[in-house]
């Protein structure tokens, strides 16, 4: 029998449709499309991505275990200094970077010196502000057990003296002098030579030269009024510190810090009071006297004459005999020492 249209249609529902080549299977009529399109909305200030211009995020990298990372971070900061020199980032930068003076890796130390040079070239007052910490870490480096760190300490000192010599010298001239003498292996008057000194017998002459240069600079800044030789172009007067107007508002950071008005000082032992603290001679043994004695030129010259001059002259003469670059540096130092005693 021939089937009617209706019957054929009914049968159609139950017949399996043949799949045709090159064509996909027909979709069921009750198929639900579950496809979707996802889109992202970008809000820039809410990005979780690292902003490469945000330097404050890089501070922790200065303490990274990988020396290369530390070095690169320092390099980034060096490049960024001209932009951030007036910003608030300088303080955390320096407070985090200065401990790298005692870093194990030479590259890091070199990068740090470059950083300090850059800062100093742009604005020395920034370095002046952090003199206390600098002195602390340089001292730490000078007495470090690792010879290379000890040897590099004078490079930092030289760098600092270049930019803020006056301030450094006022704060810790005596301490630094002792430190440098220690590094050189020379004994200051009354000091114990065996303790804390770099005991290597073979010294790198280059390093020695740097040490001698640092010592020379220290003596120059400490025992001479360098400003006295400069003359103000406009007024024609000497720029000596004695000629400064002391009654104008001070343009130094923390001008009254040396008075230590807000610091609690430990009770001084009787040894301080034993020695004469009058104008002519100042003792070289006690801390309170040391810190205050650094303040004026005459006291420093007096201490130099009593405590350091003899040893320096003796050692310099030995070095001059050896000759070479060290000899030259020693010669310059010797001349400086003689000038101080004459002046």
């Amino acid at each position: 029998m021939t089937k009617s249209r209706k019957q054929k249609q009914k049968k159609k529902d139950f017949l399996k449709k043949k799949l045709k080549v090159g064509k996909t299977a027909a979709k069921a009529s009750n198929l639900t499309d579950t496809s979707f399109v996802a889109k992202t909305i970008s809000v820039k200030n809410q990005h979780l991505d690292h902003d490469h211009h945000d330097l404050s995020k890089r501070f922790p990298l200065l303490k990274h275990h990988n020396a290369t990372v530390r070095k690169e971070t320092l390099t980034i900061f060096i490049k960024a200094i001209p932009t951030i020199i007036k910003s608030r980032l300088m303080t955390p930068l320096l407070s985090q970077a200065i401990p790298l003076i005692c870093d194990d890796t030479k590259d890091v130390r070199d990068a740090l010196i470059e950083l300090l040079d850059t800062i100093g070239a742009l604005d020395p007052q920034v370095l002046v502000l952090h003199c206390n910490i600098f002195v602390l870490y340089i001292n730490m480096a000078m007495t470090h057990i690792v010879p290379r760190i000890q040897a590099d300490s004078t490079r930092f000192l030289l760098c600092l003296l270049k930019h803020c010599g006056d301030e450094i010298v006022r704060k810790a001239w005596l301490k630094l002098m002792r430190g440098v003498m220690n590094v050189l292996g020379w004994s200051a008057a009354g000091a114990n030579t065996s303790s804390g000194a770099l005991q290597t017998k073979k010294r790198d002459s280059k390093a020695n030269k740097i040490h001698l240069d640092a010592l020379g600079k220290l003596v120059e800044y400490g025992c001479f009024d360098l400003k006295a030789t400069e003359i103000d172009d406009i007024t024609g007067e000497s720029l000596s510190s004695a000629a400064d107007n002391k009654f104008l508002p001070p343009n130094l950071p923390q001008p009254f810090e040396h008075l230590k008005l807000f610091e609690r000082q430990l009770k001084q032992s009787n040894s301080i009071n034993d020695s004469s603290t009058s104008g002519s001679t100042v003792p070289g043994s006690t801390s309170a006297a040391n810190s205050l004695a650094n303040q004026d030129l005459e006291s420093r010259q007096a201490i130099f004459e009593t405590d350091f001059q003899k040893e320096i002259t003796k050692q310099c003469q030995l070095l001059v005999k050896d000759g070479g670059e060290c000899g030259k540096a020693a010669n310059t130092l010797n001349k400086l020492a003689m000038e101080v005693c004459q002046g």
Partner: peptide, 18 residues
């Protein structure tokens, strides 16, 4: 009458202020 060394000057200054 005199210009004192820093040590004495600072000590006197501190004493005066305190």
């Amino acid at each position: 009458n005199w210009k004192l060394s820093s040590f004495l000057q600072i000590k006197i200054t501190k004493y005066a202020i305190n």
